[in-house]
Design a protein around this nucleic acid. Structure first.
Length: 306
DNA sequence: AAGACGAAAGTGGTTGA
DNA sequence: TCAACAACTTTCGTCTT
């Protein structure tokens, strides 16, 4: 299982193996090479923070991407209906009607939603474990009636966003938006709502989590990549990262690292892959330089004329 | 000519009264 | 519910390479 050494997509040997998440990701092109080593039996970490009612999972592994998790029941067909008296027959019909109403409302929704979920997930090349988690969250959301008043698609997008964050493979709201066709702010809204209602605790996403993906779409060297991670860690120690958009910081760190390693990328290039503007990069970049005293590493001459 | 820089005004979201 | 606020964007003029 772990004898993969090369990315089948781009041939790079620069693979990132994450045993905890059970994934092998290509750092060069972002392809998820292998994600089948997941043990679904213990994939579910505590679903809520330590306080309060925990929904720790027990029992046999289930797959949430199957819309009824294989647990559906049905009131029987009308095979031996003739044996029943009129009263029983009425009861039978009533029961089946109820069963029909309950099951169709929830299950049909789930079926549709999970299809949409899979579509978006594969569009974004998300690992299976994320997809599973998103499906699980969505299922709970439906059962709690949280979808009411919201479009199914936006809730799907929101749960996917949440699942990505929990698995530390964050996608930006923009990417989710592009993949799902739902407006960014709508996704953010439903995401927050669902997260709050289900008591999912999600820490603010870490800029470092974005580095690998951004670096590979910019075709930067691994050294540059690890340099930018270093920069980010320093920045975090100096509390430069709080309150700032993680993508902006990640972009700036990448930009600086690229300069230091002579792999120059324009601000525009970096800005594009990170989904921020050049101005934001400049601001973060400026802060990084002065707060981290990195000036000496970059050839620079200051000249002011007016 | 393209990239980098910075000022100023505008936008959407969060927060606290 | 509303206003203040911070982060980020858009736009644009200027400087640098």
């Amino acid at each position: 299982m772990l004898n993969i050494t090369k990315c089948p997509e781009c041939g790079s040997k620069n693979l990132l193996i994450n045993r905890e998440k059970g994934e092998v990701t290509c750092k060069s092109c972002g392809l998820v090479v292998e994600d089948k080593m997941v043990d679904h039996g213990q994939d579910w970490r505590d679903f809520e923070d330590d306080s309060g009612t925990s929904k720790r999972r027990t029992g046999a592994p289930m797959t949430y991407t199957q819309y009824d998790q294989g647990l559906g029941t049905e009131v029987g067909q009308s095979a031996d209906l003739s044996k029943l008296g009129a009263k029983d027959r009425n009861k039978f019909f009533r029961l089946r009607k109820w069963q029909y109403r309950i099951s169709t409302a929830i299950e049909r929704n789930l079926k549709l939603a999970l299809a949409e979920l899979k579509r978006v997930s594969s569009y974004l090349k998300l690992p299976k474990s994320v997809e599973e988690e998103a499906a699980m969250i969505y299922t709970q959301a439906v059962q709690r009636g949280l979808v009411r008043g919201r479009s199914m698609e936006s809730v799907v997008a929101g749960t996917l966003y949440a699942a990505c964050r929990r698995h530390e493979v964050p996608r930006t709201l923009d990417e989710l938006s592009e993949a799902s066709g739902i407006e960014k702010k709508e996704i953010g809204r439903t995401y927050r709502f669902v997260a709050r209602e289900l008591g999912i605790s999600i820490q603010p996403s870490n800029p470092i989590d974005y580095i690998a993906r951004f670096a590979s779409s910019l075709k930067l060297n691994p050294e540059t990549q690890s340099k930018s991670v270093e920069i980010l860690e320093m920045a975090q120690n100096k509390e430069l990262t709080s309150g700032r958009g993680p993508t902006g910081i990640a972009a700036a760190a990448l930009y600086v690292a690229a300069l230091m390693h002579g792999e120059k990328r324009t601000q525009r290039e970096v800005a594009d892959v990170a989904g921020v503007t050049e101005v934001t990069i400049r601001n973060r970049y400026k802060e990084l330089l002065e707060k981290l005293k990195l000036e000496k590493h970059i050839k620079k001459q200051k000249k002011k004329r007016r």
